[in-house]
Design a protein around this nucleic acid. Structure first.
Lengths: 338, 338
DNA sequence: CGGTTAACTGAAACCGGTTACAGGCACCAT
DNA sequence: ATGGTGCCTGTAACCGGTTTCAGTTAACCG
């Protein structure tokens, strides 16, 4: 029953063996005779001994933990990300430290501090300065998740630009729409920046005039509601609202429906991410599917292997594919596309 | 520039002092002469020495970390919770370990494993078994967040029952509504269970017939969309949909608006939590405000002090007040109530 | 039967810090 | 001169594990 405060030496004394033997038994390393093993296991069992994590970590010079740094939590995207990362870490018996830098001015130093408590860190793109990333990378393996870091720091991200170009082209060509509004801050995150670039590229490749400046708002649902307020009351309202992610698109949808507009007849709305809810709302949201969980899992795996192997896994960047998901909110006929 | 692998003994050698002196300087404990301090600081500065966290933790028998255990991440409620907890922990220089038990059968043992790496744990209500909570509490300070644990394990939660009774009474009395549908699984989480109880209580105290059985769905927005599907196509549709939280309410709202219903004229919808977006949608969502962030921050504080002080802070439960927020979705005239 | 060799064991040295304790020294009061 | 008192400093013993290395024993081989 009791557990704490019993050490390996205590067990050794009780079993009448040396600490080395106890360690060997509890780790399954090295050779131990059946008799010794029995005695040790008995003592361990009787006292519910479990080796102390700190002692073990100190000896192994390994924390058995990985860190995840993000700007703030909002919406399904981040929750998927965290869960994907966490499940992969747990699989490797590593614990997960989180650091949420949002609105904290001293985040660089806190990230550095975190580096002293974990074996590797994943940092969401745009969360900390390149300089801090470099320092971080000099201490522990680092991977930038959904973004790119300075040279030498590997990254894992999804294809944004081409997918957004394809989506925008779909609206411009298939649906013949013209006045498209983009909602999102390109300078706010690398993801949005790439999506905005893809949006612009589609206009350019069709020799259309440059689109209006983006409506610089956050990525949360309430920002979408705000966007709807601004875009749908001003004249002339755009024909389509291209949102930087699904959450804002949902917000715009709620805002549009709430003021009596029909989607897609009166206004077209598109998102990005393919959050679970996007398939369920009516009209279904046309969007781009991004393998968020897999992105995070891959990041976790890279960090874990990098922290195990002394050899450098190489700063290869990983780019996961995305996929255009056509539903009804763009004006295409409603389907049961999940 | 360089940093790793330099130890306190190395600094001591370089500065020509003893390790004790280095430790004293780097910790600011004990008396050190100006000359010694200068020499040590110089060496520390020159080599960018920062004491190793593991060594320090082992010596102090303190991890400098706290854990947060939750079933899964979904929506603003959980993200607020995490962020509230995290900011308070960071303030105390503690790192935050997360464990997401969702759909994992061996979560009890993983929680116990976590206990060996942190100084205290916060567990969301309903996440792990009472038995596991007891074992956990025998190792480290534990607080149940948003729920109650077994005897001896303190909890921090918000007032649910009375608030839900008040909200329900409002619908029944002020608006004269009768057929109310409740959306949420009372057995899924302690919060929902209490809210369902409050919902029932309002009916009972007005001598009305018992309400229909709850529509047992999850707490995410897509569950609300599903709820709308089931409730609004069946005959007779309820007059009001009382949701276990704001997210499902938003889902129901989207579902209702999507099929051309007007809210609140055709159907009344209410939520619980007062998520940021609930004030922004149109119609504004009538709901109950819950101090989620403060709940989590208080939890973090209790854990941190409990792990500092050897003295038991006492298993006093904390119950934070909630507040009914009347907006437009219940049928009250629209206001600018934020 | 002597010599290898393999299997097993334990003492002691780590990992990188903190800290109890004792010793040295300067200064002061007898 | 002597004893006492503070202040500073360093030695060494922790914290709780792992691991190297040398030593013992027994089995095996020629």
């Amino acid at each position: 029953m009791g557990n704490s405060r019993i050490t390996v030496r205590e067990i050794a004394r009780l079993a009448g063996v040396s600490v080395a033997t106890v360690s060997r038994v509890s780790n399954g390393t090295g050779q131990v005779s059946a008799e010794m093993r029995r005695r040790v296991l008995e003592a361990i069992e009787a006292h519910g001994y479990r080796p102390d994590h700190l002692g073990r970590a100190l000896a192994a010079r390994k924390h058995g933990a990985v860190g995840l740094v993000f700007p703030g939590l909002s919406g399904p995207y981040f929750t998927e990300l965290i869960q994907g990362f966490e499940s992969e870490a747990v699989r490797a018996q590593a614990s997960v430290h989180i650091l949420c830098t949002h609105l904290r001015e001293d985040s660089d130093s806190q990230v550095l501090e975190m580096a002293r408590r974990v074996d590797g860190v994943a940092v969401l793109g745009g969360t900390v300065s390149d300089e801090a990333l470099r320092q971080l990378a000099s201490r522990v393996p680092v991977v930038v998740l959904a973004g790119v870091g300075p040279a030498g720091v590997p990254s894992v991200r999804a294809e944004n630009t081409a997918a957004m170009t394809e989506l925008t082209r779909h609206l411009l060509v298939e649906h013949g729409l013209r006045r498209l509004a983009f909602v999102g801050s390109p300078d706010g995150s690398p993801d949005v920046s790439e999506r905005w670039a893809g949006f612009q590229a589609a206009h350019r490749e069709l020799s259309l005039p440059d689109p209006d400046a983006p409506l610089r708002l956050g990525l949360q649902q309430q920002d979408g509601v705000l966007a709807a307020e601004r875009l749908l009351s001003g004249q002339p309202a755009p024909e389509a609202v291209v949102c930087a992610n699904d959450e804002t698109a949902l917000g715009v949808l709620v805002g549009a429906l709430g003021r009596g507009l029909r989607v897609p007849q009166d206004i077209v709305i598109t998102g990005f991410d393919d959050a679970p809810i996007s398939a369920l709302v009516s009209p279904g949201l046309t969007t781009v599917r991004q393998p968020v969980r897999e992105l995070a899992a891959e990041t976790a795996r890279r960090i874990l292997t990098a922290s195990d192997d002394p050899i450098d896994g190489g700063p290869e960047d990983v780019l996961l594919p995305t996929e255009l998901v056509i539903r009804h909110s763009c004006g295409c006929p409603a389907t049961d596309n999940p």
